[in-house]
Structures are given as C-alpha cells and as structure tokens.
C-alpha cells in the first residue's frame, strides 16, 4: 500500500469538501430530507405489512351449516373442503362451542344469559394458507351443498388491501420526487466545485491525468454528501422513533407494534447506501458532462 498516494488523494477530497461549505450544506440537507422520507416510508410500510399479516392471519372463513345438515353430510363437506390445497385447516365448531366463543369475545358487553335458545348454527372454521386466496376459497365453499351462509370479514380485507396499495403508490411518488430533487442539488453542488477547480482540472489534463482519475475525487465528494445526509437523517429518524413509538403504542393499544419485526439495522444500512449512491451518481453525471466538453 502506497500511503503517500492515499494521503494525497484524501487531502484533495477533503479540500474540496470543506471549500464550498454553504453549497455542501444544501446538498446534505436535501439528502437528509429525502432519506428521512424514504426511511419513514419504509418503516411505516414495514409496520403496515406486519399489521396486514396479523389481520390476515386472524382471518378465518366461518362456514355456517344449514339446520338440516346431517352429521354424515357435515363430515363429507369437511373432507371436501380439507382436500382443497389452498386450505390450511378445517375445524368443526358445534353450536354450543360457538356460543361460548361469542361470550368470550364479547366479554361482559353482551348478556348472553338472556338467550333462552342457542341462535347459532353449527359451523366449520376454515383457515387458508395465503390470505389472497380467502375470497376465492370462500366463494367456492359457498356453492357446496349443506352450506347456509359464509362470513370472512370481506370488507375489512378489501379495504386493507386497497389502503396499503394506495399508500404505497403515494409514498413512492413522493420519494421519487425527492430523489430527483436531491440528485439535481448534489449535481449542482458538484458542478460548482468543478467550476471552482477548473484551473486545477485543466492542469491535470495537461500533465496527463486520465478522466477517470480526475473524476474520482468528485465522485467521492458526492458520495460523502450523500452519506452525511443519510447519517443525519438516520439520527433524526432514530430520535423520532424513540420519541414517537411509545406514544403511538399507547394510542393504538390493540395493535401490537412492538411485535413488528422490522430490522432497523438493515434499514439503516440500506438508507446509507441509497444516500451515498445518489450522491456518487449525481456527481458522476455532472463531472462527466464537464469532462466531455
């Protein structure tokens, strides 16, 4: 390793980086905003996905049997449903069980002792392997003989899917916009540094430096801009998480936020890489444009 060479190179990068403090701050700031948005988006999306799977996993198809169904018919129906490869499990719930369950779920809110007769029919509790199949499986079962009605919280599922898709699209649009803005500002910053150093670049070209070599410090500078912006964003995101999450959890007690297994370290690493990459790419383009002239 030629330490003298490395020291010279780092010195050049450092000098650039500290020369244009104002512009540098602007570039870093836009990256920070971009990465905060991206980070918040990815985090919220992680939560949403976690929530969706939680909800989906709780989804079950209640297949209410007609009053007239004989035990033999019920058994046959059960086998038919269980043979469907999309179905994970089928469980028979006699009406007595159903009532107990209802009591448990409602807690003290409903006084079931007033009921003189069990109004619930027998049912089959069907769980599917993948949530997306639920409506198709349900429609299929509804047509089978011996089935009276079917219930699986259709509207909840539909709304949840719609919501996450809309939020996803809006988020991506906002982030794309900010990535573009950050790229433009970084590439402007680099262009200013290039302009400030045009004498130096001219001399480099004169003494036979290759374009790749001339480019390298600027790429590093852009990368540093992006990295600093991302680091700043991560710090702010971390603070936000520490400050906001307990409040959010308190406000939404039924959602087990803590159980969401979002790998924050991986997310942080990805955000840093995105920041650095945006910076490096933006400056690559802007120096390239200068050198081609």
């Amino acid at each position: 390793m030629d330490w003298g060479k490395l020291k010279f190179f780092l010195g050049e990068v450092g000098r650039n980086f500290t020369r244009n403090a104002g512009m540098q701050a602007t570039a870093i700031g836009t990256v920070t905003v971009t990465i905060i948005l991206l980070g918040a988006f990815l985090y919220v999306r992680g939560l949403m996905m976690h929530l969706s799977t939680e909800v989906f996993n709780q989804i079950e198809i209640s297949v209410y049997l007609s009053e007239s169904a004989t035990p033999v018919q019920t058994a046959a129906l059960r086998t038919t449903i269980a043979r469907d490869r999309r179905v994970r499990s089928v469980q028979f719930v006699p009406k007595k069980e159903g009532l107990k369950e209802l009591r448990r779920r409602m807690g003290g809110q409903v006084d079931t002792s007033l009921l003189t007769q069990n109004p619930l029919p027998d049912k089959l509790r069907v769980r599917v392997r993948t949530p997306e199949d639920v409506s198709r499986v349900a429609a299929h079962i509804a047509k089978l003989p011996g089935v009276s009605t079917i219930n699986y919280g259709q509207d909840v599922v539909a709304r949840l899917m719609q919501l996450s898709s809309v939020l996803g699209k809006i988020g991506i649009a906002i982030i794309a916009t900010f990535v573009v803005i950050a790229s433009i500002i970084i590439s402007n910053t680099i262009r200013l540094t290039v302009f400030a150093r045009r004498r130096e670049i001219g001399i480099m070209q004169l003494v036979g430096a290759t374009n790749a070599y001339i480019r390298l410090p600027f790429i590093c500078e852009g990368f540093l801009d992006g990295l600093c912006g991302a680091l700043l964003a991560l710090a702010l995101l971390a603070i936000a998480k520490v400050e906001l999450m307990p409040k959010l959890s308190a406000a939404l007690p039924f959602v087990r936020l803590g159980a969401a297994s979002i790998d924050v370290w991986q997310l942080a690493l990805e955000l840093l890489l995105v920041g650095g990459a945006v910076g490096a790419l933006a400056s690559w383009v802007s120096v390239g444009r200068y050198l081609r002239v």
């Binding site: 030629d2 330490w3 003298g4 060479k5 010279f8 000098r15 004498r199 130096e200 001219g202 001399i203 480099m204 004169l206 003494v207 036979g208 430096a209 290759t210 070599y213 001339i214």
Partner: peptide, 28 residues
C-alpha cells in the same frame, strides 16, 4: 505559468506525478 496558488512549489511539481498515479517513491 498555470500554477496552483494554494500549493507550494514542491506540491505543484509533485502534482503532475501524483495525478498520473505515480508511486510516492518516484515522487520523492
């Protein structure tokens, strides 16, 4: 002249070698 004002005489001369990737040994 086309010298870099923020570099010393030595650095200006060494610059021509350094930016062409010369070894420190050769610069010295």
């Amino acid at each position: 002249f086309k010298l870099l004002n923020e570099k010393t005489v030595w650095e200006n001369v060494a610059f021509a070698l350094q930016v062409t990737g010369a070894h420190t040994r050769d610069v010295m």
